[in-house]
């Protein structure tokens, strides 16, 4: 079952001017319910445009965007309700912080939704927990926080809406490895608790392999490939041709195999390769 579907969607920036650019050309793609779908592609491949289609920030020139089977543009006046159901975290979301305290900023979306006051406070504390913002930071000004903390607060501000689908454009860009793990881990926790679906735009093939069930590949405003992570990464050569890569560890696995070490399975994560190597070593030990 797909929670979000794009049906032959096309979009052109600056239509009718000499500066017009095709951002999406006849893209049809489905995002599976309850799964984490990765979205990869080169800069300018139309990822960010696609992401803005999903919660109705952009309206397709042609084609439809279906949320749970219903066209989101059926009632253009009620597009806001779609935005509450499909939470979008933009690239470098820390720029969106504005309120006096972290607490108020995270609660902004909830106030827009008309949530009762007591519930706002409770939910703010809950989502702050997901992204690792402690109780002591909630009363600080968001502008006194560090870059990484600002990022977490901004993500929490979207999580607070408890969206069914969470769309994140490079949520971990520019963070240190630990920050990456904590943020992406927090998102996984959120998904389990709320049975949400996640769409994750990233340049990191390692993150894709580690967190995503499915992968969608964009290239030059068109859909290049979609499938499960294993299926897509199995097409390593094609990916390299379009300037993308498979996770680094998969190269290590391939080289090991070339050297005559018979590793088993589809290996795209460090843990997976480690396990395969261990299995082999143990197997040899017994023999």
């Amino acid at each position: 079952m797909d929670i979000l579907t794009l049906n032959h969607v096309s979009y052109t920036y600056g239509r009718g001017t000499p500066f017009c650019v095709d951002a999406l050309r006849d893209v049809s793609v489905g995002f599976e319910k309850g799964k984490i779908t990765g979205l990869i592609g080169h800069t300018g491949s139309g990822k960010s445009t696609l992401v803005q289609m999903l919660n109705g920030l952009l309206k397709p020139d042609e084609g439809q965007v279906l949320l749970d089977g219903a066209d989101i543009w059926e009632k253009p006046k009620e597009i806001r309700s779609v935005r509450f159901r499909v939470g979008l975290v933009m690239q470098y979301p820390e720029y969106q912080l504005f309120d006096e305290t972290v607490r108020a900023d995270i609660g902004f979306a909830l106030r827009n939704m008309g949530t009762p006051k007591e519930e706002i406070d409770e939910r703010v504390r809950e989502v702050a927990g997901f992204v690792g913002i402690g109780e002591d930071l909630l009363n600080k000004s968001p502008f006194d926080l560090s870059g990484g903390q600002k990022r977490r607060v901004a993500i929490a501000g979207v999580l607070a809406m408890q969206p069914e689908v969470l769309v994140l454009d490079e949520p971990a860009a520019g963070l240190d490895p630990r920050g990456r793990r904590e943020i992406l881990g927090g998102l996984c926790k959120y998904r389990e608790k709320n049975h949400a679906s996640i769409i994750l735009v990233s340049h990191s093939m390692e993150d894709m392999a580690a967190y995503c069930d499915n992968v969608v590949v964009m290239r030059g405003a068109e859909l290049f490939a979609q499938g499960t992570t294993v299926e897509v990464f199995a097409r390593a050569e094609e990916l390299q041709k379009v300037g993308l890569d498979t996770p680094q560890i998969s190269h290590v696995a391939a080289k090991l195999r070339e050297a005559g070490i018979p590793l088993e399975g589809e290996l795209y994560t460090v843990d997976g390769v480690a396990e395969a190597v261990l299995k082999l070593l143990r197997g040899e030990g017994k023999a």
């Binding site: 920030l57 806001r80 935005r83 939470g87 979301p93 720029y95 969106q96 827009n112 501000g157």
Partner: peptide
């Protein structure tokens, strides 16, 4: 461009 980005971010949080 920046204004547009910020507007989109706040609209995504349901700003009317």
């Amino acid at each position: 461009e920046e204004t547009e980005k910020i507007m989109n971010a706040q609209k995504s949080r349901g700003a009317d």
